[in-house]
Amino acid sequence: MSESEQEQRILQAAEYVLGTLDARERSRFETLLMHDAEARAELAYWEQRLGALGLAPAPVEPPAAVWDGVTRQLGLRAPDRDTAEAGVAPPGQPAANDSAGPIWRGVALVASVAALVMAAMLFTGSTEREASPAEAPQPAYASVVYDEPTGMSWLVTAPKNGHKMKVVAMGDYDVPEGKVLRLWFKPENGAPVLLGKWPHTHGDHEMTMPDDVARSMDQPAQLMVFMEDAGSASQASAPSGKLMWTSPIARRTG
């Protein structure tokens, strides 16, 4: 490697950490990182060196709600009483009121796999009903949104070439006053698109998909549900608030 190439790599890594590269340059560097160990080492170097600047601001205690949000988003249980009493709970964090059992890592991933299995069951169930001509068209797409802490789930299905998405809420989910759950469609390689208010009361619901979403259903995508302020724009171009759940959309392949 020539000196100028090496310098180029040093600068790319430094500016990647600094955040001054534009989107195309960032993407190019991320590709380089996948197969260039020296680029990764250079990145780690700058993360450490420039990262030291992050030590300068005097610490500020975050509100307890942040930790609540972390545990909720990850589907972790509340900390156990012993831990809280030992004084290691995050500042401002109330002591937990239940004892913690074993928690496994990667709940979100497990939930995603469970969602796919359940989605496959939806397909299967529908296939079994095909004998009945009165049945609605079998779903081409399915997804299951699952709230680990409460066990609440939603089954989502959509037909091929359709604009209606059926959402079956398997129970009631409490939404705090002033908040609203909103469903976003997130293609793997694209920006999220707002589909509308996410139902939280028991029963069957229907949501409408805009043309671009209906056309994208064959591409890898996820459903994302955010808890947003009820007063926030219902036509927002990007999600706000807290990400509550994500679930991949399974496609019928047979």
Partner: peptide
């Protein structure tokens, strides 16, 4: 390894610095 208590301790020890930044 999925140790939630360790994660909580890590948060308690470091979140104020990350939040300040």
């Amino acid at each position: 390894r999925g140790d939630e208590q360790a994660f909580q301790r890590l948060y308690a020890a470091t979140s104020s610095q990350l939040y300040a930044l």
